[in-house]
């Protein structure tokens, strides 16, 4: 189930902006661990479980790879572990690499979720207001791509079954060439049709099915509050020359808790909606 994507594009956009911003900038292992579990649990909700399990293995390999390579490129840090060809390998660089790997993994998982939640219609919503013409081209392109692929498939099959003995690459090129001609001819017909219907005479109106409801506003407000609370504490880690952990005062703990909630908002929302769905079904 993916009910989180039914939110208004603005709410969704700011949510992803906030979590990505903190994940990329904070460089705080605790924040990143929260983000990792928050994003992966949400990702498991909206895509199938097997794919997530496979991707977890990939992320762990990624984190190890970055951890292992960072000390080769970076020789900062005071605690020298050992030397390789007169290059010092430091503990700080190793820890920095681990955090870096985690950061990249978290950002990639959030972007995967973003891809599943933020479809092209939502992008069009953003473009449509300030760039109406670009939005038109964009939506036309999205329509053309599957059309072109379909006509390529048709032409290619016809060529293959015609009994002509040509190599596969040659046939692909021939079919692609036919697709080019066909699509360009069609473009001319489309533009004539647009012109006949009066495109460009008046300002275009733009339809979108998204409505900014009170529900959207509430979620946006909650994420803004959690985001600002997460930034409130002085939670920056220092890596070089020594590894310095920030103090655990009240404000910092508050920041950690707010980011923990912020990361798990989509997951909790999915769980809540899933439970509601099951409850309503059981009632029937």
């Amino acid at each position: 189930m993916n009910t989180f994507k039914n939110f208004h594009p603005i709410t969704l956009f700011f949510y992803f902006l906030f979590v990505l911003f903190i994940s990329i900038f904070s460089f705080n292992p605790l924040f990143l661990i929260f983000g990792f579990f928050g994003s992966i649990s949400f990702y498991a909700c909206i895509s199938d479980f097997k794919a997530v399990f496979k991707s977890i293995i990939f992320y762990i390999i990624l984190i190890f790879a970055v951890t292992a390579t960072n000390p080769i490129f970076s020789h900062n840090g005071a605690t020298v572990l050992f030397f390789i060809n007169d290059n010092r390998i430091t503990l700080e660089a190793l820890i920095y690499g681990a955090v870096l790997g985690l950061m990249i993994a978290v950002a990639v998982i959030w972007f995967r979720c973003f891809n599943l939640v933020f479809d092209s219609e939502k992008i069009l919503y953003f473009l449509g207001k300030s760039f109406p013409r670009l939005a038109l081209v964009f939506s036309m392109t999205l329509n053309f791509v599957p059309n072109l692929l379909r006509s390529f498939k048709n032409i290619n099959t016809a060529q293959r079954l015609s009994g002509k003995k040509t190599s596969r690459i040659k046939r692909y090129l021939n079919s692609f060439s036919a697709v080019i001609t066909q699509s360009m001819e069609n473009a001319m017909i489309t533009s004539d049709s647009m012109k006949a219907r009066g495109y460009g005479l008046k300002k275009r109106t733009f339809y979108s099915r998204f409505k900014f409801t009170f529900y959207d506003l509430t979620y946006l407000a909650v994420s803004i509050i959690l985001f600002s609370l997460s930034l409130a504490g002085n939670t920056s880690f220092e890596f070089y020359p020594y590894f310095v952990i920030p103090k655990a005062d009240t404000l910092n703990i508050l920041s950690y808790i707010s980011f923990l909630i912020l990361s798990f908002v989509p997951f909790l929302f999915e769980v809540k909606e899933g439970a509601k769905w099951k409850f309503l079904i059981s009632k029937i």
Binding site: T141, F144, V145, L148, T190, M194
Partner: peptide, 8 residues
């Protein structure tokens, strides 16, 4: 329209 076609 041609821009959309070339991109596609």
């Amino acid at each position: 329209v041609l821009l959309a076609v070339m991109t596609a």
